[in-house]
């Protein structure tokens, strides 16, 4: 490949422009990053086309591997899953009963109906482009109403939050990244704290009061205080509780509810608390719900 025939002046101009960009990035970081993000919109849109194509290729290869090659031990796994299903079905019946009782009590006490968040489904099309962050790339962006600082979940629990969005894609910082923090609550004891990611890809709940009675196995849920997530979404299960000498709080290591290495589809929470009328309609339309005259 031949060397680009650029004149000395062109090279000098390019270097001067790059130096000016560097100066702008260091002197006015947020403004210049905002400009780069804005101008990067079309670039992101162009990049999302090959990204989707490569992602389909990746998914196809994974399906072939999972569907044909990695089938060893599937019979044992199937037997275990059937056992678990029986157990969960039993538990589900009990929970239905409890839900009916709760609804009746709520009606008696005239509680406000819990609203359902406004969510949009998105597909995971890639992982963070660097080694420095635990992140995923989604195929939904600003044109689908996805913006930075929106929560991302799966039916199993919390995944993370959107940190960047172009018109057709967005980047999500996973809950297991040390740069992420979520306001949380211990389901059993109602103690509040902050859940942060750790270096080894797990999570840690900090600022648990010293007098708290938490123990390994307790479930941690979102407290709904930050606005990204509604209250009550599963975050993880406590595996180990620590308190170092002189500390004012305890901290606990968590096993996240969601397996971050196997994310295919997620839900982006556009608004954690939707209009209560819409959610009432949704609840009234659910099977088994009696319609009021």
């Amino acid at each position: 490949m031949a060397i680009l025939r650029s004149t000395y002046g062109t090279k000098r101009l390019a270097v001067v422009l790059f130096a000016l960009l560097l100066a702008a990035l260091f002197l006015l970081p947020s403004q210049s990053q905002g400009v780069l993000q804005f101008l990067g919109g079309p670039l992101g849109q162009v990049l999302s086309v090959p990204l989707e194509a490569f992602s389909s290729l990746d998914r196809g290869m994974t399906e072939i591997w999972d569907g044909y090659v990695a089938l060893r031990g599937i019979r044992e796994e199937n037997r275990q899953l059937r056992k678990e299903l029986e157990f969960v079905q039993g538990q589900n019946n009990q929970l239905r009963e409890a839900a009916v009782a709760t609804q009746r009590l709520e009606a008696i006490l005239d509680f406000k109906q819990k609203s359902i968040p406004d969510m949009v489904a998105a597909q995971v099309i890639g992982r963070d482009a660097t080694n420095w962050y635990r992140g995923i790339i989604l195929n939904k962006g600003e044109q689908d109403g996805v913006h930075a600082e929106m929560g991302v979940v799966t039916p199993a629990g919390v995944v993370g939050r959107v940190v960047k969005a172009t018109s057709s894609s967005s980047v999500v910082l996973l809950m297991t990244d040390p740069n992420n923090a979520i306001a949380a609550l211990v389901q059993g004891t109602r103690d509040e704290g902050i859940v942060e990611g750790t270096r080894n890809g797990r999570a840690r709940m900090k600022y648990i009061p010293l007098l708290s009675t938490v123990h390994p196995g307790d479930r941690v849920i979102t407290s709904g205080l930050t606005g990204l997530f509604p209250r009550g979404l599963a975050i993880g299960v406590m595996t180990h509780i620590e308190k170092e000498e002189g500390d004012l709080f305890r901290s606990a290591e968590l096993e996240p509810e969601v397996d971050m290495t196997k994310l295919d589809e997620v839900l982006v929470i556009r608004s954690p608390y939707e209009d209560s009328d819409a959610s009432k309609k949704m609840i009234q339309g659910m099977p088994g719900e009696k319609k009021k005259p």
């Binding site: 993000q37 660097t130 940190v163």
Partner: peptide, 14 residues
């Protein structure tokens, strides 16, 4: 720039 758009980091590092 493209890599920064597809990463959770700040939009200047790459």
């Amino acid at each position: 720039w493209s890599q920064d758009l597809m990463s959770a980091g700040e939009l200047w590092v790459n």
